[in-house]
Computed example of a mutant assay.
Amino acid sequence: MANGQTQQTDVIIVGAGPVGLFTVFECGMVRLNCHVVDVLDDAGGQCTALYPEKPIYDIPGFPRIEAAELIVRLKAQAAAFRPVYHLGEQVQTLEPRTGGFWRLTTSKGTVLQAKAVIIAAGVGAFGPNRPPLPGIEAYEGKSVFYYVTQRETFRGKRIVIAGGGDTAVDWALSLAEIAGRVSVIHRRDRFRAAPDSEARLKALAKEGRIDLVVPYQLHGLEGDDGKLTAVTVATLDGQTRRIEADILLPFFGLSMSLGPIADWGLALERNQVEVDPATGATNKAGIFGVGDVVTYPGKLKLILTGFAEAAIAARSAYALIHPETPLHFEYSTTSGVPDA
């Protein structure tokens, strides 16, 4: 359909991460059609863009599932309801229209209209926190990477990992199985990772399978034409050390922004959207929120929590769109999957 021509649907979902995809399914279960908008070029959010090969352990029914596989399954589950995806498009404006509708426009000129909007934007627009190293841009994408999307890319390489959180520790443990050498740089001896992971890291260090370089921080890079040969690290009092390396993986978290969502007049707390946990409703009638982008007392930032929120928001959206037809609650074992 040509840009600028309004496309009508029941629900607009902002965000195609795991919770956004499950929201499509839950909306379909109450016979609501969905259009999904995401700034990334593929569905899956962080699971696709940042850690597709990272295992997830708290998805019900799956003792272990890789992030990419979870997205494949969620897309297949949602596909029964024929969602329309608008990928590689950032939401620009959201405006109220007569009749209780919301009109949404994207960066590519797509115009959508619906009575319900469900924000499932995860952490919002995200990008890596880059270390302040001179000339690092020349190495990015060649020998400096902020995400691991294919572990095999690093087989046999000399890898330096900088950071002390779960991402740094988890990838150190994983890459130690295939890398030529793994060195972990952190400014203190204690890590911010899960205790069991930290214990495994230090056990591998004692076995000589991982080098723990503490307390140090990144100081400089050596190499030519984007090809890294060594990383220089330094203590707080200026002592330096040179580590030969092919790859640098700085894991200093994400720089997150709600982007245009912050300008929609929604009640926010610490860059998160406040919602009523009983309904998923924001302070704007017809706009709901699910997943990591929302907050309320007792909120747990877990994918499975977002899944439950998706079911609640879908039913709230139905009540808004079809107030004259109360929804009779049924378990899926009774109702089956409705025809799209």
Rank of each mutant, 00 (worst) to 15 (best):
M1E: 12
M1Q: 15
N3I: 00
N3Q: 06
Q7I: 11
D10W: 06
I13W: 10
V19G: 02
L21R: 09
F22G: 00
T23Q: 14
V24S: 11
C27I: 05
M29S: 03
R31K: 01
L32W: 08
N33Y: 03
N33R: 12
N33W: 01
V39P: 02
L40Q: 13
D41S: 03
D42L: 06
G44L: 03
A49E: 14
Y51D: 12
Y51I: 15
A68C: 01
E69A: 13
E69V: 10
L74I: 04
Q77M: 11
A78Q: 03
A78N: 00
A80E: 14
A80Q: 11
R82G: 00
V91W: 09
F101C: 11
T110Q: 13
V111I: 14
L112R: 12
A114M: 07
V117C: 14
A121W: 08
A121H: 02
G122E: 10
G122I: 14
P131N: 11
P131G: 09
L133P: 01
A138E: 12
G141A: 11
G141P: 12
K142E: 07
F145T: 09
T149H: 09
R151Y: 08
T153C: 04
F154T: 01
F154R: 02
V160F: 07
I161M: 00
G163C: 00
G165E: 15
D166C: 10
I178E: 07
H186N: 15
D189G: 08
F191I: 00
F191K: 01
R192F: 01
A194K: 02
P195Q: 01
P195D: 05
K202H: 13
K202N: 12
G220V: 01
E222S: 12
E222M: 03
G223N: 02
G223V: 06
D225R: 15
D225Q: 15
K227P: 04
L228A: 11
G238R: 14
R241I: 05
A245H: 04
F252V: 05
F252T: 02
L254M: 08
S255D: 09
S255C: 04
M256L: 14
L258R: 10
G259Y: 07
G259R: 02
A262L: 00
G265V: 06
R270S: 11
Q272P: 02
V273F: 14
E274K: 11
V275D: 03
G280W: 00
K284A: 15
A285E: 12
I287W: 10
G289Y: 15
G289N: 07
K301M: 11
T305G: 06
A310Q: 07
A317T: 09
I321S: 06
T325Y: 15
T325R: 15
E330P: 00
S332L: 13
V337E: 12
V337R: 12
P338N: 00
D339F: 01
D339N: 01
